[in-house]
Amino acid sequence: MGPETLAQVLRPLHERFPPGEHPDVLVGLADADDAAVYRVSDDLAVIQTLDFFPPVLDDPYLYGRIAAANALSDVYAMGGEARLCLNIAAFPEGMDPAIPAEVFRGGAAAVAEAGAVVAGGHTILDEEPKYGLSVLGVVHPDALLRAGGARPGDALLLTKPLGTGVVLTAAQQGVPGHEAALEAATASMVALNREASRLAREAGAHAVTDVTGFGLAGHASEIAAASGVRVVLEAERVLLLPDALRLAAAGAVTGGGRRNVEQLGARVRVGPGLSAPLVDLLYDPQTSGGLLVALPPRGAAALEEAGAGRTIGSVGAGPARVEIR
């Protein structure tokens, strides 16, 4: 569901829960951020998020681990640490119980790596399997990171390579030579954003979001709109998964990527001379993608030196939009 459609669907909730009547909701329905945040006290806020999706791989353990890493990422994008998780799942009636058990085991491995705990959950019957987590995190209210806050002069850094949507599509289509790319994509998707979030906080990050369903272009647009700044992406500097460009050129592009192009419209301006496969990757929906961080150039250099990402653009004054060069 695109941003405009989502805003229309959520309008009745905005009317029922006006932000002014709930001052302790620091991040809620009115904000284009990665999770909801509620202030419990002057020095503690809780972060709440929920995410789940159908299988992206045939291996149930890896699927569970990726889905959990994807859900946990929202907490890291807000500058917090995960504490408590609940499974949310759906499986077909009659499925071999060993399969859900492996999905849950994979999710538990990611949660344990995050230093959190799975304390329960809810499972229903459905023809198509689905799995994810509801995650409770914690953060000091003054340390909260948001999509708004990027400043002119900031560098933009991406912590993971792009291309999971294209690579997963290529695997589903059986595009020749996709195997190495799928292995690299799997390694990227199971990796938590916890350490990248910590380094971004230490480097003085001004704005953060994780790159997921709206693609790099879409989530950069969220930073631009929330911060009131112009975001410039240098396409040739963007990290890509191995073979992702070749697979995109072979036609392994996603329907979600095409919808992103249509829904973002004039909010993203693509410069001349860029190859169509590269542009496709900038709109490509990501599963368990990296963090997009706006921070001072010196902080971006520190993260690059630590091997935590690559500077891919900059923030400038001007109309709130994204320019891809």
Rank of each mutant, 00 (worst) to 15 (best):
A68I: 05
M78F: 09
V139R: 04
M1K: 04
L84V: 15
V268G: 02
V139D: 08
G318P: 10
S73M: 07
G313V: 07
A207F: 01
T311F: 02
V37D: 01
G2I: 03
A252W: 12
E236Y: 00
S73L: 04
L125M: 12
A181K: 03
A276S: 13
L240V: 00
G318D: 11
A116Q: 14
P272C: 08
S197N: 10
R39F: 02
V208G: 01
L10F: 08
G307P: 11
V175R: 03
G137T: 09
L44E: 14
P18R: 09
A7K: 14
S41W: 07
L157I: 04
H22D: 08
A220T: 08
R39P: 00
P54A: 14
L29W: 05
G79I: 11
Q172C: 08
G120C: 10
F52K: 00
R230D: 12
P319V: 10
I223F: 13
E15W: 09
A203Q: 08
P141M: 04
Y61F: 15
L29T: 00
L239Q: 10
P129E: 03
E15F: 00
T169C: 06
A308Q: 13
G273P: 06
A301E: 13
L26R: 14
G299M: 05
A294E: 06
G115Q: 09
R259D: 05
E179I: 03
D51V: 09
D59H: 10
A155S: 14
V46C: 05
L162H: 03
R246Y: 04
Y61R: 15
A101G: 06
A171P: 06
L157V: 06
R321Q: 14
A185K: 04
G255N: 13
G107Y: 03
T212R: 07
V40E: 11
D210G: 01
G273L: 02
D58H: 12
A301G: 10
Q8M: 11
G177K: 05
E179F: 07
P242T: 05
A294F: 14
Q172H: 12
A302K: 05
I124G: 12
R146F: 14
R298A: 15
T5L: 15
A82L: 02
Q173F: 03
A77S: 11
D34K: 13
L26A: 13
A266L: 11
L199P: 04
A217P: 10
T212P: 02
A30R: 11
G106D: 03
E15D: 15
K160R: 15
I66M: 13
G218V: 06
V229M: 10
T287L: 15
P55G: 04
E93A: 14
T164R: 03
G256I: 10
R198F: 12
G153P: 03
G271Q: 04
R310S: 13
D280G: 11
I324E: 04
Q263C: 11
D31P: 01
P97A: 12
A69H: 06
P272R: 00
D24L: 11
R321K: 08
V315E: 02
Y283R: 08
G316F: 00
A249I: 01
E15A: 15
